[in-house]
Design a binder for these strands. Sequence first.
DNA 1: TAAATTAAGGACTATTTATATCCTATTTAT
DNA 2: ATAAATAGGATATAAATAGTCCTTAATTTA
Lengths: 142, 142
Amino acid sequence: MQITRQTEYAIRTILELAKVEQGKLVPTKVVSTNQRIPEVFLKKTVQLLAHAGLISTQRGTDGGIRLAVPTDKITVADIITAVEGRPALNVCLADTYDCPNRPVCQVHRILQRTQAAMLAELSRESIADLVIGYEGQQEKTC
Amino acid sequence: MQITRQTEYAIRTILELAKVEQGKLVPTKVVSTNQRIPEVFLKKTVQLLAHAGLISTQRGTDGGIRLAVPTDKITVADIITAVEGRPALNVCLADTYDCPNRPVCQVHRILQRTQAAMLAELSRESIADLVIGYEGQQEKTC
DNA sequence: TAAATTAAGGACTATTTATATCCTATTTAT
DNA sequence: ATAAATAGGATATAAATAGTCCTTAATTTA
């Protein structure tokens, strides 16, 4: 029922990148330190975000990562999807699970509506929307 | 991001009880067979539902379990809460986790709104609402 | 072109959570 | 008493999550 810690790391990474000027490269080392995320694990997470097209990466000296998409085009749903795959409230609602009983399954039917609402909410506001009115206070995280 | 299998078992158990006439005792063995839920594990699950006050149990010959609350007073949120505790989108939003950084944590703030919407949706309709128009088809489940 | 810097990615390990079983005790009807 | 049923603690197994280690590849700069 919860997002994973890795997904939280991903959200914090996006927030960290959103703080600096658009297009500026930030080394994962810096994100790791600022956000207290284990460095090697963060690199794994970064790859997922890159594959999903949310960030772009550059190797070499002065390399790092940066947002590939403006913050007003990124939602929490996008980040969760990048890390965990499309959110599903139950196994039977996952893309990868093609259950033959779907048409006659009450559980599936009940959870489907709830999930649709949940997804809509997760996609409703962008990171830009969510961060507004909160500048300068983001030093600490839960 | 998903409910556990145990929670699905719990939902199916409630649905099973909702099928029989209000107040009639059903042995867990019967629920176990009908819903193909491992019997001993189901008993554990039943205890959680009982502690939450959603069902009542009776030991001894002709004992079993029954709904303690009418189906129009039970929501999916109630069932999830009974099994997993109050749904939280992230550790830092759980009742049991008292994070000192909450007031200044962006992640917390962002997820809180989403979670509130999710909870609202999970509580919006009762099992009775959700089952309506679906009688007689519930033989199989995903 | 060599050295330094930084990400990519595969293999592996550790930890935690979820799922399930086993065994014994307790309650209730006949 | 006996049989039928739930209660509940202890334990085992399996799966998912979290994290490390090592090697490779790309890029910049001296």
